[in-house]
Simulated assay, not measured.
Amino acid sequence: MSSQARDRHRDPPLTVRPPAGLKEDALKALKARDRETKAFVVACLNALVADPDGFLERLDKHWPVQTPRGRPRKTTTPAAPQQRQQMPPSGGPEPWSEIDEAPRAMDPGTGSWADDDIPSALDILGAADSSPED
Rank of each mutant, 00 (worst) to 15 (best):
I118V: 12
D11R: 08
K38F: 01
K28P: 00
T77D: 15
E57G: 14
G91H: 09
C44Y: 00
F55E: 11
A121Q: 10
Q82A: 14
D51R: 12
P18H: 00
P88M: 07
D116Q: 06
R8S: 13
E57I: 06
D53K: 14
A128G: 07
E98R: 12
L14P: 00
K28I: 09
D53E: 15
P52H: 02
A26Y: 03
A47V: 02
A47P: 03
G109S: 12
P64I: 10
V65L: 11
S90E: 14
D60E: 15
C44H: 04
F40A: 09
E94D: 13
I124P: 02
A121T: 10
L56I: 04
F40T: 00
P72C: 08
G54C: 09
L56V: 07
A105F: 02
W113P: 01
A102F: 09
D7H: 14
A127H: 03
S112D: 10
C44L: 13
L125F: 01
R104N: 05
L122Q: 10
D115M: 02
T75F: 11
F55Q: 08
G92D: 15
G126H: 05
S2D: 11
K61W: 09
M1T: 06
C44M: 13
E24A: 12
P119G: 04
Q66L: 10
M1Q: 05
D107M: 02
E36V: 02
K28E: 14
K61N: 13
L125R: 05
I99Y: 03
V49S: 11
P95N: 12
G109K: 14
I99H: 02
D7N: 14
D60C: 08
P13F: 01
S131F: 06
S120Y: 03
S120A: 03
F40G: 02
A29R: 03
R71D: 13
V49C: 10
G91W: 05
G54V: 08
V49I: 14
P64T: 10
G70S: 04
R8T: 13
Q66R: 14
A80D: 12
H62C: 09
P81R: 00
D51E: 14
R71G: 09
V49A: 13
G70E: 05
M106T: 14
T15R: 08
M106R: 14
A114T: 12
D100L: 09
A105N: 09
E57P: 01
R71N: 11
G21P: 04
D116K: 04
L56N: 07
V65Q: 13
P132R: 07
P89W: 05
R58Q: 13
I99K: 08
A80K: 12
K28M: 11
K31T: 06
E36D: 15
P103Y: 04
Q85H: 15
F55P: 01
G111S: 04
P52C: 01
D134L: 11
A127K: 07
R71P: 06
D53G: 09
W63C: 11
D60S: 15
K74T: 12
A29H: 03
A50Y: 10
A26I: 02
G70T: 00
D53L: 11
K31N: 06
G92R: 15
P119R: 01
P72L: 10
R69Q: 12
E36H: 04
D115C: 00
P52D: 04
L48R: 11
D123G: 02
T15K: 08
P103K: 05
V42T: 14
P18G: 01
A26F: 01
A121E: 09
T15S: 05
L14F: 01
S3W: 03
D34G: 00
W96Y: 14
L122M: 02
T77P: 00
T15Y: 00
